[in-house]
């Protein structure tokens, strides 16, 4: 499904699969959002989503040998949207949609480690799609401006 999404205004970056790449990732996201004049609260959500998805690939695809490709764009026909796509080549499939959910109502002692990042991502995005083909793993998220973004900005 994600592969059918029509993107415009795309830019692309390849990042070494290490935590030190985060600064470059943030800069890439901020620059792209500024170019599109996106709301600052949406930018804040985008940075968090980008970090969580990128660090998940670094942590959970240790067999990956290639840089992680990041594509930022806009959904065609939705100027106040941001699409982020992460392509990780030569890795096993890991569909974030099927990852175990965090039970945020459970006492801390009963919570399983991990999963919080994806939990936050699902709060921040308006859609998340995943595609795996011939060893290439592609995760695509769409973030739309929300009324709450404007409320956050005023607080």
């Amino acid at each position: 499904m994600s592969m059918d999404l029509e993107l415009t205004d795309t830019v692309q970056l390849a990042l070494p699969r290490e935590m030190e790449s985060l600064e470059g990732l943030f800069s890439f996201v901020r620059t792209h959002c500024a170019r599109l004049a996106l709301d600052s609260s949406l930018v804040r959500r985008a940075e968090l989503v980008a970090e969580e998805l990128f660090t998940n690939l670094v942590k959970y695809n240790p067999e990956g040998k290639h840089p992680i490709e990041v594509i930022a764009g806009t959904r065609a026909g939705s100027p106040q949207s941001l699409v982020l796509r992460f392509v990780d080549r030569g890795v096993h499939a890991f569909d974030p949609r099927s990852a175990p959910r965090v039970d945020t109502r459970a006492p801390l002692e009963q919570r399983q480690p991990g999963g919080l990042g994806l939990h936050l991502v699902l709060h921040m995005v308006d859609s998340l799609d995943y595609h795996h083909e011939a060893g290439d793993s592609t995760t695509t998220v769409v973030l739309l401006a929300r009324r709450k973004d404007a409320e956050d900005r005023r607080t």
């Binding site: 609260s41 945020t104 801390l108 939990h119 936050l120």
Partner: peptide
Amino acid sequence: PPHIRNIFHYAGLDQI
């Protein structure tokens, strides 16, 4: 700040 508090809220940690 509100946006940081929101993250703790989404994580269900403002109850803990």
